[in-house]
């Protein structure tokens, strides 16, 4: 898994490539923690090139969400393929994560908040 972080206007965009499982999720956890510790409160995870996620990856996202909630920040997700979206749907995490079809929609919603 590779994570490229682009910082822009107080928002960090994570471009994630590959699979998020027990092996890779510590890397994502560390990147989220570092970003939040730097004071960035708005994080967008772009799933365009994420092929797979399991419960370890989902747990990492929930941890990130909790950390950001504590500092009144936000995490948004975008550009999931149908297979990934199905995992969020069946686990009902669609209800707690803001999920967008495009990066632009998600970024615009940060600005509106």
């Amino acid at each position: 898994m590779e994570i490229k972080v682009i910082n822009s206007n107080n928002t960090a965009v994570f471009e994630i490539t590959g699979e998020i499982d027990l092996y890779n999720s510590p890397q994502l956890r560390q990147q989220l923690t570092e970003t939040i510790n730097k004071g960035l409160k708005f994080i967008l995870l772009d799933f365009s090139t994420v092929k797979y996620i399991d419960s370890s990856g989902l747990a990492t996202l929930i941890e990130g969400l909790r950390k950001l909630n504590k500092v009144k920040g936000e995490i948004k997700l975008c550009c999931m393929n149908k297979n990934i979206r199905d995992v969020f749907e069946v686990s009902r995490l669609e209800d707690i994560f803001a999920i967008y079809n495009t990066r632009e929609e998600a970024l615009n919603d940060f600005k509106k908040d």
């Binding site: 419960s55 941890e63 069946v90 686990s91 009902r92």
Partner: peptide, 14 residues
């Protein structure tokens, strides 16, 4: 319980 949002426990659910 899916209403109890927390890390962990989803694996067995799946």
């Amino acid at each position: 319980d899916l209403n109890d949002i927390k890390p962990g426990g989803l694996g067995v659910f799946f």
